[in-house]
Design a protein around this nucleic acid. Structure first.
Lengths: 350, 350
DNA sequence: TTGAAAGCGCTAACAC
DNA sequence: GTGTTAGCGCTTTCAA
């Protein structure tokens, strides 16, 4: 009915000046005002249903309590939980999330960041970074930024990631323990830290078991999609029919491997074992249930929000990297290799 | 390095007054300025990398080109695609999405709406509404709002939904065609339009086939979750062991029905058929692959964004309701009832 | 402890 | 077609 109340209305009702009302309203300046006045102002604000106009506040303070969250595509099942965690983490502190998707296109990302900057955003959480990306700047000033799930090489930006090395290590160890020797890797693009780290981890883990990795054992696919996984695994299988196990960089890619196997009349896990990464919702239900590496999606979101809020408060602090533990989830897609495939001596050594 | 450029800097560089620069910069007022001046201003803006400060603009115009998107929980697999569609629909028009989750709590929703209002949001897309909800108001003024996936009874708010009646009708028809007669329904809460409409559609569809629905054949679960579905189906099965098919209100609930069946040593589809709703990603992969109703998630998002933008432009227009078509996706979870369960005459009539 | 005054960057009357 | 002026609602010196 009446117009929306401003701080002036509150001040008037409380019988003080608007600047005093402002001081009384904000917790951080509250102690410069007498208790009696604070109470009067707060009462008046409550009575009027006052909510500060954040545009006006932003204009003055150049802050907005809004954070930009940029991801490749929300439909990739890794992201919903991460974003949910971010939202919860931000909300605790009175911040909100502005969400946008890039489909992995750097140009779209650039535009989005610019558009969000113009909207006075206080910081960014990015799940889109490539290894060689620079942190976003605001006319020379670094904008507080945290990366989730991905990381950059130079380490100049804070990042929250899962322990890729441990995860891939666990997958390789499981397969080797099962008796596999000819293990292949379907990797993600080298430009992405997730792809690169997991690839490096694969090579290292294999080496730890005395196994070398030839080029023919690895395929880099162009994206984290089922279809890319299907094609990469197909080419791998065709060039290299002797492989008995595939470590996929990601669950979606692993499901793509299932298709490649099926197309060639191969059975998983009887002919070829497959492992995934992420423990995406519902990967427990396909047939066979996918053995994969669980990452703490939600917690990664929460942590990245906290880290960003800390950076916003203290932009000078050194960048921090948080690596969250992962866990092998053994299901049905990894089993012992077929009889004729494994070195006889070691077979079935449980 | 230099400060971030304001419209004054642009005006100065172009040799005009800031108000002229403002007019030249915005497409809608551009034609009140001479072509020569427009060009000069645009060049200056480009050279300086000028982006209008949206806080200042908001403060003046009371608009923000930001839309609030409020959903129950992003982790429910219906939402990612819808939200993605919304984001794409908004972006076409230069709008952005602010996202928040309520976990279905009306109080959280209320607070969120208030917080977003204070942030000068231009409108809301809500996937959280209960049937008796009122549209959000801004001190007496209705805030432009569109509902997605859900609807309210009074029809005062624009809404984009899937054709629930047709979907449930198709599921019932499939099951009846397969020979089922004792078909049960695991419904969602009556307070939600999705729950209520699908329940009504179930009763109607059964009637169309000459089948009446007793109370014992229906359970309302408290939420769209696997666990709620498991419990509801369990109680249904225990009270009513003769049923041969379950129409679930939703895929998550249907997967819960799988669990209830398994716990009782019953097989799907051999003993009991199950149908879902939504055709959520990956429900094609569990065992058995779920027969369900596909809804156009992404398009629902796009449409709701467009509808909201139209309402923002013309708040006076009558509320519009868009019902998008659905499609039965027959997979493996619905089959003919067991021999001894179906009326002999009609069995296996193809 | 409080008030006065200025100003963030932009847009919209109004005047020329 | 363009400039002048005022002001959106808030915070923040500065003075009292």
């Amino acid at each position: 009915m009446d117009k929306v109340p401003t701080i002036k209305d509150v001040a008037e009702l409380a019988g003080v000046h608007s600047s005093t009302a402002s001081r009384a309203l904000r917790p951080d300046t509250r102690d410069t005002v007498s208790d009696r006045t604070v109470k009067r102002v707060l009462d008046a604000a409550r009575k009027l249903g006052f909510a500060p106009n954040s545009a006006a506040r932003s204009l003055r303070t150049k802050t907005s309590s809004v954070v930009g969250v940029i991801i490749p595509d929300l439909r990739n099942p890794v992201f919903p939980s991460i974003v949910r965690g971010i939202e919860d983490g931000l909300r605790e502190a009175g911040y909100m999330a502005m969400l946008a998707n890039t489909d992995g296109d750097p140009e779209t990302e650039r535009k989005l960041i610019a558009a969000m900057r113009a909207r006075q955003i206080d910081g960014f959480i990015l799940a889109t970074s490539r290894r060689d990306d620079l942190p976003p700047t605001h006319d020379g000033e670094l904008v507080p930024t945290v990366l989730v799930n991905r990381d950059t090489d130079d380490g100049s930006v804070s990042a929250v990631t899962a322990d890729n090395a441990a995860g891939i290590g666990a997958a390789v160890q499981l397969l080797v323990g099962l008796g596999h020797r000819r293990i292949a890797h379907v990797a993600a693009p080298r430009e992405l830290s997730t792809g690169w780290e997991r690839y490096r981890a694969f090579v290292d883990a294999m080496a730890r078991h005395g196994l070398t990795v030839s080029e023919a054992q690895v395929r880099f696919c162009e994206a984290f999609t089922e279809d890319a996984g299907r094609r990469a695994a197909g080419s791998l299988l065709d060039d290299n029919p002797a492989i008995t196990a595939i470590v996929a960089v990601d669950d979606l890619v692993a499901i793509g491997c299932y298709s490649a196997l099926a197309e060639r009349g191969l059975s998983c896990p009887d002919d070829v074992s497959v492992t995934g990464f992420n423990d995406t919702p519902f990967v427990g239900t396909p047939h066979p249930a996918l053995t994969t590496i669980h990452i703490p999606h939600y917690d990664m979101g929460i942590e990245s929000a906290r880290l960003l809020l800390a950076r916003i408060k203290d932009p000078g602090a050194a960048p921090k990297r948080i690596v969250l533990p992962v866990r092998l989830v053994a299901r049905d897609s990894a089993a012992a290799p077929p009889m004729d495939a494994a070195p006889p001596m070691e077979r079935r050594t449980r």
